Simulated assay, not measured.
Amino acid sequence: MDTGYRIIIADDHPLFRSALHQAVQTAVKGAELQEVDCITSLMQLLSEAEDIDLLLLDLKMPGASGFSALASLRHQYPDLPVVIVSANEEPAIVQQAMRFGAMGFIPKSAPMPTLVSALNMILEGEPWFPEGISLEDAPQDNIAERLASLTPQQFKVLIMLSEGKLNKQIAFELSVSEATVKAHVTAIFRKLNVQNRTQAVIALSQME
């Protein structure tokens, strides 16, 4: 039966993309699959595509630095289910993915039956994470939580600050006034509990 699901696989390793493609086809018969190998291509595809049901995202690929891609995606496409597929299986990494709103975290070492089971569960609307990992034992006041509290526009401004852009440049690119940008910057400082641009950029870099 054709499920009609539209799924994107974002990973820069051809062999693993192929394995993941096979797992998705086994789990979701008739799904429409698209593959990208860098964040630039992913963003381009998302801007053009409609009704994507699931994104399978590798943490490490061109254009992505740690959790910056996941955080950006969650802000720009809050309704898009994102599942991290990573070779790094440390509990702290899984917990970060949880904090940033990932729908699941599938280790690259997972055998095919586990991959298929996880994908089925996620497409039914149930989160899937490795057993025994939760946010209850994670450190409190995590920078991830503060970054996740930013609005989509504030997150865009923070990314632009990290690129060294001035308020005037940011205002031009976002088609808003400088006063609006200043208000966003003030809100960013307050939410991140920082005093200046340098500290805000350092906070962003801690996602890597």
Rank of each mutant, 00 (worst) to 15 (best):
L70H: 03
G4I: 03
I106V: 15
H13L: 06
F67L: 15
T3Q: 13
A87I: 02
P127A: 01
A69T: 07
V36R: 06
E163S: 13
I133D: 05
P107I: 06
N88D: 15
I122F: 01
S47V: 00
L166E: 11
L166K: 15
S162W: 08
L158R: 04
H75K: 15
P91I: 01
S65M: 13
M1N: 13
V36A: 03
V36I: 01
Y77W: 13
I9G: 10
L56H: 04
K165H: 09
I7G: 01
A71R: 12
N120H: 13
L57C: 10
S134V: 05
A10I: 02
V181W: 08
F172H: 02
T3P: 01
L57H: 14
S117P: 00
M98A: 07
M160C: 07
E35D: 11
L192D: 06
I170S: 12
Q140T: 11
V85M: 04
V157A: 10
E35W: 08
E208H: 14
D58K: 11
S65E: 15
L115R: 14
L80F: 01
A49Q: 14
A87C: 08
Q169T: 12
A187N: 12
Q22A: 12
A71G: 12
V28R: 14
A144W: 01
P127R: 06
I9C: 06
L123S: 09
K168S: 15
T114H: 11
G101A: 02
P62W: 06
H184C: 06
L115W: 14
V28M: 15
V36E: 03
S175H: 12
M43D: 11
M207R: 01
I202T: 13
E208M: 09
G4M: 05
Q140V: 12
A183N: 14
A27T: 08
I170A: 08
E145P: 00
S18Q: 12
H184I: 00
F100I: 15
D51S: 13
S205D: 14
R197H: 09
L56S: 08
S68A: 13
S177W: 02
K29I: 08
A138D: 14
A179P: 00
A110K: 07
R74C: 07
Q34T: 06
A144I: 00
R74L: 07
S47P: 02
M103I: 02
Q153G: 02
A71D: 10
I143Y: 01
E145W: 05
E35Y: 11
K191Y: 05
I170G: 03
I170L: 07
V157W: 02
A187C: 05
E131T: 11
L46Y: 04
M43P: 00
R99S: 01
I143V: 14
A92F: 07
I52Q: 02
A203N: 08
L59P: 05
V28Y: 07
F105S: 02
G125A: 03
V94K: 03
Y77T: 09
